[in-house]
């Protein structure tokens, strides 16, 4: 039984990705890491994860486009949490309009992220 829940994490800060991967894998999830939106979309199409974590500003394909791709092209209701930096309020609003479920403003505490992930995957 593949009870392990898969999470795709798209984030161009590789150290942060690694940190979150460790943290979330300790909680029993399987993490798939993408460094840009392009890779994220590929991973999502391949693995059909239970949750998507994505930064808003990334090279090549932005987080907004990832959301839009999941909701409109793939027609999936996979929960999505976006990460945003300060001063991107407008983008966060757009992300919600496109169908994001939650957001975390950077800098954030990894522990809090775990709580929100658990809540969405319950």
């Amino acid at each position: 039984m593949s009870d392990v829940k898969k999470i795709v994490l798209a984030e161009d800060n590789t150290t942060l990705s690694l940190l979150l991967k460790f943290r979330l894998e300790k909680e029993g999830y399987k993490l798939l890491i993408a460094v840009d939106g392009k890779e994220a979309v590929e991973l999502i199409e391949q693995h059909d994860p239970e949750l998507i974590l994505t930064d808003i500003m990334m090279p090549y394909i932005s987080g907004l486009e990832v959301i839009s791709h999941v909701r409109n092209k793939l027609n999936k209701q996979t929960p999505i949490i976006v990460f945003s930096a300060a001063g991107q309020e407008e983008m966060v609003l757009k992300a919600f309009n496109l169908g994001a479920n939650d957001f975390m403003g950077k800098p954030f505490s990894p522990n809090e992220l775990v709580i929100r992930v658990k809540r969405l995957l319950r």
């Binding site: 930096a85 001063g87 991107q88 309020e89 983008m91």
Partner: peptide, 8 residues
Amino acid sequence: YKEILSST
């Protein structure tokens, strides 16, 4: 540049 001037 990523950090700045994304604000309104």
